[in-house]
Amino acid sequence: MSDILIPFDREKQDYVGFSASKLFAAVYPEAVALAPLIASPYWCRLAGGTEAEQARFFAEVASRVTYPYPPPNRSDDAVAHWALADSWRPPSRPPDDLHARPRPRHPARRRREPPRPSRSDR
């Protein structure tokens, strides 16, 4: 699907007409198809389980997507990355304020901001 919405121009060696909207449209069907697996405690357990359980999980992924899904390359595949790195974690809560900037989880990665002047300094 992405090849249709965002074709690669071999002459220019670039993608023609790329936009975030087209990218989202290209991946939306797969995202919807995979959402029940990612939300299911059963499939999450298999995704982070033994090699045999992971093979069952990836076979199910392959049956739900519209493109050929060979055994995953664990370094380049977003689903495989999630299975290995995050499938064991509980889902994160959505932010209370959707317009607020997310705060880094690790204190050392927080951006250093100068202290705000107090009312007496104004």
Rank of each mutant, 00 (worst) to 15 (best):
M1D: 14
M1Q: 14
S2Y: 11
D3V: 06
I4A: 15
I6K: 06
F8T: 04
D9Q: 02
E11R: 05
Q13I: 07
Q13C: 01
D14M: 03
G17L: 09
F18R: 10
S19P: 00
A20D: 09
S21K: 14
K22L: 14
K22Y: 02
L23R: 05
A25L: 11
A25Y: 07
A26T: 08
Y28N: 11
Y28V: 06
Y28Q: 12
E30F: 00
V32H: 11
A35T: 14
G48K: 04
G48R: 06
G49M: 04
T50F: 07
E51I: 02
E51G: 02
A52Y: 04
E53G: 11
E53K: 13
Q54G: 12
F58N: 03
F58P: 03
E60M: 14
V61D: 02
V61F: 06
V61H: 02
V61L: 09
A62F: 03
S63L: 11
V65K: 04
T66F: 08
T66Q: 09
P68N: 15
Y69C: 03
P71F: 05
P72T: 00
P72R: 03
N73D: 06
N73K: 03
N73L: 00
R74M: 06
D77H: 05
A80D: 07
H81N: 09
H81Y: 09
A83Y: 09
L84W: 07
L84A: 15
A85K: 14
A85R: 14
D86Q: 12
D86R: 15
S87M: 04
W88G: 11
P90K: 07
P91C: 14
P91D: 10
P91I: 08
P94S: 10
D96N: 14
D96I: 12
D97T: 08
D97W: 02
A100H: 02
P104H: 12
P104S: 13
P104D: 13
P104E: 08
R105W: 04
H106P: 07
R111W: 04
R111M: 04
R112K: 15
E113A: 11
P114S: 06
P115C: 07
P115H: 02
R116Q: 04
R116P: 01
R116N: 00
R116H: 01
P117D: 13
R119I: 05
S120M: 12
D121I: 05
D121N: 09
R122I: 03
R122W: 13
